[in-house]
């Protein structure tokens, strides 16, 4: 896949998003006012943050199904910290959330790296473990709005230059990880380890360790999102964001991330998430039933994968395997 094709894939997806917005606007013009679009972006922020982490994990030929459970567990822990120590400043809470999330991600990463357990099995297991841990910590009780401190709840909604802080954090994450992926040795290692693990090994890249870092990043982003989610909705409970991991994977797939690894960009993951976010926000206002919403999201995923496959096929391989003349 050449860079140019990748770029055009992102351009294509942007085009699809514009067409989608135009269709919605034709029935409900208010949807495309800047204020509403900013709302949609803010609503989609958790999906974007998680999709960035997931994109990196998928890039290394792994998958992280525990992101939503990680989000819920970290969210519960920081909510309980806030209940116990209401005076703790928000930056410390955020640092805790990122740290806890990263530790949970490292747990996945260690299992994949050192024990060489298939990632889908590891993260299915830890997904259940994380949910179970929330139950143990909370006794199945909810942490409700009135128990949380005001600064804890206010932070993500605070406005700065017309956008909520949550949106700014997401924009910062997109820029930061775009830089990491394109301009650091770690970012290059993610692409190499997923693109051809054998070649990467011979080039001196430790593939297992690279996957470990991918899970760590995914976990850290899930932890950060956990705090943002709990504070924005002012509630923490066992089933928070249940099943959300599938939306995250879907966003990556729509965003052109190759499920076989090695191909994907932060911009693609963000656009994939926005595409799903717009569908989710727009369809109710144009009076389409939730069942159709699911069908449309599903169709989008299949169309995206079909387009990716086609792109790979039409490209063709120029390397003619020379006829073997020798024994």
């Amino acid at each position: 896949m050449s860079r140019h094709v990748l770029m055009s894939r992102e351009v294509l997806l942007s085009g699809a998003i514009l067409v989608l917005l135009a269709l919605i606007a034709s029935r409900f013009p208010a949807f495309i006012t800047p204020a509403n679009l900013a709302n949609v972006f803010n609503d989609t922020a958790p999906l974007i943050l998680l999709a960035i982490g997931q994109m990196i994990v998928i890039l290394t030929r792994c998958i992280d199904l525990s992101v939503a459970a990680n989000l819920a567990l970290t969210g519960m822990v920081v909510a309980m910290i806030n209940v116990a120590l209401p005076g703790l400043p928000v930056p410390v809470i955020i640092a805790c959330a990122i740290g806890i999330g990263a530790l949970l991600g490292m747990f996945n990463g260690i299992l994949v790296w050192k024990l060489e357990i298939p990632p889908i099995v590891v993260t299915l297991g830890t997904m259940t473990i994380f949910r179970g841990t929330i139950f143990l910590l909370s006794d199945g009780q909810w942490v409700n709005s009135h128990e949380l401190s005001d600064p804890f709840k206010a932070f993500p909604r605070a406005e700065f230059l017309g956008l909520p802080v949550m949106s700014w954090i997401t924009i910062a994450a997109v820029l930061f990880f775009s830089l990491v992926m394109s301009r650091t040795t770690l970012g290059r290692a993610f692409y190499a380890a997923g693109g051809n693990p054998h070649a990467a090994t011979y080039a001196g890249i430790d593939v297992g360790k690279t996957q470990f870092w991918a899970f760590t990043i995914s976990g850290a982003l899930a932890g950060l999102t956990g705090y943002l989610w709990v504070s924005r909705f002012a509630v923490a409970f066992v089933d928070l964001a249940g099943g959300f991991e599938l939306n995250v994977v879907a966003a990556c797939v729509i965003g052109g991330v190759a499920i076989m690894g090695g191909i994907g960009t932060v911009a693609g993951a963000m656009l994939g998430a926005l595409f799903l976010g717009i569908i989710g926000n727009a369809l109710p206002v144009v009076d389409i039933s939730p069942f159709w919403q699911l069908a449309i999201s599903g169709a989008a995923i299949i169309i995206a994968v079909a387009l990716n496959t086609q792109a790979n096929r039409t490209k063709g391989r120029i390397i003619l395997k020379r006829a073997e003349h020798a024994s």
Partner: peptide, 23 residues
């Protein structure tokens, strides 16, 4: 299977084992 990373451009393949020097 063990040589090139076909999804990456030429320059990134060439520098892969030398990243210590190009970073």
């Amino acid at each position: 299977t063990q040589g090139a990373i076909t999804a990456l451009p030429i320059f990134q393949n060439v520098t892969l084992p030398s990243l210590g020097r190009t970073s």
